[in-house]
Nucleic acid binder design. Structure first.
Lengths: 245, 245
DNA sequence: CGTATACTTGATCAATGTCAACAAGGGTGG
DNA sequence: CCACCCTTGTTGACATTGATCAAGTATACG
């Protein structure tokens, strides 16, 4: 076990396969379910009765606007807990990207158990905290307004996720989602995403083995793009900061 | 008490002033701190030792990129719990928008207490879940690519937040943050935000009493903008959906 | 009252959305 | 095993939007 210390507290990573205490916590509560590729896990605004903890595969959450476009796409990987309700209804829909298995956790039973099992509480809080930080990273990503920077940062987040899960930085990355899904996630058109990938390969930053298989070929250039290092440096004034009252 | 039922479970709103059980949960753990306008609450990547639960005022979280621009801005209002760490360090900085008071909760003590106090766990999970949904809404907002729609949606979220807190939809809204802060939050330049406000007033959607004080004058038009109802309807194909394996 | 900050407005231009056509790839059934 | 088709991805041309630079106005604060 590589992570016993990191996973015990409130902080630390909550990515990757379930630890033994997590398995224990959900064992008698949840049932395992299988989803085929593109299967809908739950629908937007549907009455929320279960949380889902992904065990294998990949899934996405999204909100479909009246005009038919998908927004707020986020991706879920093994270890992710998703399907949190607002006013007892799901905020967004969820769909499997490929064949996937998940733990289906009844909210009511979870809540009841929570009142008597502090270990479960700690697991939940850790998962939620991890989710919050993940989403925050996506918010930062979406604040950028250059297509290449967004796509590069998206890849950096995927890579980081793999690294947290496996313990080492993966040599190659695989994209379980389509260009269109990526576009909805990073707030670009799918054409812009495609062009960004092409540009990244053209510059020698990424090297593609197939459409969804690649590796980071030029680490320095990649980090520069992710870190948003501008070619022409233009310093701005520091944040105004006053004394603590 | 208006919300006893809504606030007891895992779902339901976690916005607004603290309920009695929340006060109890943190009473012996936390200390109250005051922040002056623009005071830094914590810095990016600083070692995280406390969570903050805002009692009064308003604050923002943000990440400053190497080029000096702020990204991933989110706003905090009374009842919000923020300052969640990743690997024991804050992901982003936090700053008071105006004079504010907050509960400063030591993470270590919180974790220790969590192991024995299921009531506290429920409060924490509810706050975190609320935060996750709030962030998700911002992700959806940032997916849009029309400036007016983004600003309108931003206002809708503020309004919704007030409504959850007070129980009724507020007649007038007050913006505790600058145009520049809004710009960083919705991913636009501050000029674009300014123009969007001007356009919204020009179309009679909003009516300004002062720069930061306004009301929604044309509810229908406002909802149309928020709902992203396009002038020319262009239906797209439905999501492919396969059977649950 | 004066100065710094916040906000507005205008002009220009690069970047991305959109529309359109085409290429590639994967799966299915003959 | 091959041919076909449907989905996914790429590339090009063009129009539009918002970023940027710049100037000016309003507001708040000392």
């Amino acid at each position: 076990m590589l992570w016993p210390a990191a996973r015990s507290g409130l902080a630390g990573s909550a990515a990757g396969p379930l630890s033994s205490d997590e398995k224990l916590a959900f064992a008698t509560l949840a049932t395992t379910v299988q989803f085929g590729k593109n299967a809908i896990i739950y629908r937007d605004s549907e009455r929320a009765e279960f949380l889902y903890l992904l065990l294998e595969g990949a899934a996405k959450s999204f909100t479909t606007l009246p005009d038919g476009s998908n927004r707020g796409v986020t991706f879920h990987f093994p270890g992710d807990l998703f399907g949190w309700p607002e006013d007892n209804r799901y905020a967004g829909a969820a769909q499997a990207l490929k064949s996937a298995t998940a733990l289906k956790i009844p909210l009511e039973a979870l809540e009841a158990r929570l009142r008597s099992d502090p270990g479960l509480a700690l697991v939940l809080v850790r998962k939620l905290r991890y989710h919050v930080v993940q989403q925050y990273r996506q918010l930062v990503l979406l604040g950028r307004n250059d297509a290449i920077g967004r796509v590069a940062t998206f890849i950096a987040l995927l890579e980081r996720r793999e690294q947290e899960e496996k313990g080492i930085r993966p040599l190659r990355l695989h994209l379980p989602m389509s260009r269109s899904d990526i576009a909805d996630c990073v707030g670009l058109s799918l054409e812009a995403v495609s062009r960004a990938f092409t540009a990244l390969e053209g510059r020698g930053v990424l090297s593609f083995r197939s459409k969804r298989h690649f590796r980071v070929a030029d680490r320095a250039a990649f980090q520069a793009l992710v870190g948003h290092i501008p070619a022409t440096v233009k310093p701005k004034r520091a944040v105004k900061e006053e004394v603590q009252a």
